[in-house]
Simulated scan of single mutants.
Amino acid sequence: MEYLALPPGLVTTTTAALACGVQPATIRDWVRRGLLARVGGTPKRPIYRLRDVLAARDAPKPSSVSQRAQNPA
């Protein structure tokens, strides 16, 4: 079940993924990696600030395994 209405500037995982052109699993991965923080909702239905989602989309990300090993999160 999705939320019926959210305040302006807040989005669900699904809406965040649509805004960034990625899968919802990618949004959850950004949260796990500390690139994006939840601002409300429930554990199963988190809510994010749209500006934070767009910032996470634009944040530099490691492109190879060796970079991940050098820069642990």
Rank of each mutant, 00 (worst) to 15 (best):
L54W: 05
T12N: 02
P7S: 09
L54P: 08
I47E: 01
R49D: 06
P60F: 06
T14L: 12
T42R: 07
K44Y: 06
P7N: 09
L4G: 08
T15W: 04
L18N: 12
V31T: 10
T42P: 03
L54M: 15
K44I: 04
R28H: 09
P43Q: 09
R38N: 04
V65G: 04
V39D: 05
R49A: 07
Y48D: 01
R32V: 06
P43I: 06
P62W: 06
V22T: 11
G9D: 07
L18Q: 14
V31R: 06
T26A: 12
W30L: 07
T15D: 14
V11L: 03
R57S: 15
L35G: 03
T12K: 00
I47C: 03
A55M: 10
Y3H: 07
T42S: 14
A73T: 11
R51W: 10
R28C: 04
A69T: 10
C20M: 13
R38A: 11
V22P: 09
R45I: 02
P60N: 01
R32Q: 13
R32N: 07
L54N: 06
L6V: 04
D58G: 12
E2S: 11
L10P: 00
I27R: 02
A56K: 03
Y48N: 02
R28Y: 03
P43M: 06
L36P: 01
G40C: 03
L18C: 10
G34V: 05
S64G: 13
S64A: 14
